[in-house]
């Protein structure tokens, strides 16, 4: 696959520029599998030693196939799931050590947009009530101010005042996703974790929501952690991308660099597997054999060696570390 690409005009954000807003260090999340006596017999290693950082104002895309741990990573950062090990540092504080009010306060800064717009809104509450709830929990403003703020935010995501009184079932998938975004925006967070925000939507609606995400990012100076399995969407929206496989981060790179020069064999295979809407381009495919191994018993050494066309002896024994190859481009592979 040869792709000649014009580099994106905007100045690429670099880690070195010292405005890291969130740092994830050696994050691990293991789910216990319990036996008949409620004893832990083994563990699902959903997120296994993942480290990366978010830079202020960027969109960091986290991609991978189902079961690779990308959503678990997102949820563990917010402590919707308790991490097994590791640190998540925001504003000098380790989120994993916070309790009670401190944790609640930090959640004002970190919000989430969920994948399924149908199940993430309470069907028995009006849109206005759903949005106001967030403000109430964080004790912001009095009743009148809160209503005013909700009206404002609805306006920002393209609704009118009358939508305040409607119920979720009166909205389509794309509209609900915009409400989900409004709910995240309303307490003015600095980071939003978007977990597959457009994968339940049709193509024409998907582009509407993606554009809205970009608009509000500019306006509210937001940082996104954008979790998705759709490599086209991720390429469009992200400044940097991390590729996950079986609970590990196997590659990290600025977007254009990743698509023009993928290093990890898994990333290469993943990119070549995407059907491109262009019948005139015949690309060479890298075929992967087999399927993702179980995260209960991940392969020894490099987790990808069982399917890797370039696997060597060392891959079976030694786990490769994530190392920088060229500027900002990191890969965990023994080939480099």
């Amino acid at each position: 696959m040869v792709v000649e690409m014009s580099l994106k005009q905007s100045t690429p954000k670099t880690e070195a520029s010292n405005d890291v807003i969130l740092e994830v260090k050696n994050l691990k999340k293991y789910f216990p599998i319990t036996g008949s006596l409620n004893n832990t017999v083994s563990q699902v290693k959903a997120v296994n030693d993942v480290s990366f950082s978010l830079i202020k104002g960027e969109t960091y895309g986290l991609v991978g196939e189902s079961g690779c741990g990308k959503s678990t990573t997102g949820r563990t950062i917010l402590r919707l799931l308790e991490p097994t090990e590791g640190e998540v540092i925001y504003d000098g504080q380790n989120i994993n050590k916070l309790k009670g009010n401190d944790l609640r306060n930090i959640r004002r800064e970190l919000q989430m947009v969920f994948q399924d717009p149908y199940s993430s809104l309470n069907p028995r509450k009006r849109i206005g009530t759903i949005l106001e709830e967030t403000l109430k929990i964080h004790k912001i403003g009095n009743k009148k101010e809160r209503t005013e703020q909700v009206m404002n935010i609805l306006n920002k995501v393209g609704f009118q005042r009358e939508h305040y009184y409607r119920f979720p079932h009166e909205f389509s998938g794309g509209q609900r996703q915009r409400i989900g975004l409004a709910r995240a925006l309303i307490i003015n967070p600095s980071i939003i974790i978007c977990d597959e925000p457009v994968s339940a939507l049709d193509v024409s609606i998907q582009s509407q929501v993606l554009n809205l995400l970009e608009d509000v990012q500019q306006e509210f100076n937001l940082t996104y952690l954008f979790i998705s399995h759709d490599l086209g969407v991720v390429r469009h929206i992200s400044d940097r991308i991390g590729v996950m496989y079986l609970g590990k981060l196997v590659e990290e790179s600025p977007t254009d660099e990743l698509y023009s020069n993928p290093l990890h064999p898994y990333t290469k295979a993943l990119l070549s597997a995407i059907p491109v809407p262009n019948p005139f381009v015949k690309r060479e495919k890298i075929k992967l054999i087999g399927e993702i191994p179980s995260p209960v018993n991940p392969p020894s050494g490099c987790v990808f060696h069982t399917r890797c066309p370039f696997a060597m002896d060392v891959c079976k024994q030694e786990e490769p570390a994530l190392k920088t190859i060229v500027h900002e481009h990191k890969v965990a592979c023994h080939l480099y």
């Binding site: 024409s204 491109v276 809407p277």
Partner: peptide
Amino acid sequence: LLKSIPQIEGPR
């Protein structure tokens, strides 16, 4: 439809 799909090739 064709224009609204984010592509993995070409200019972003």
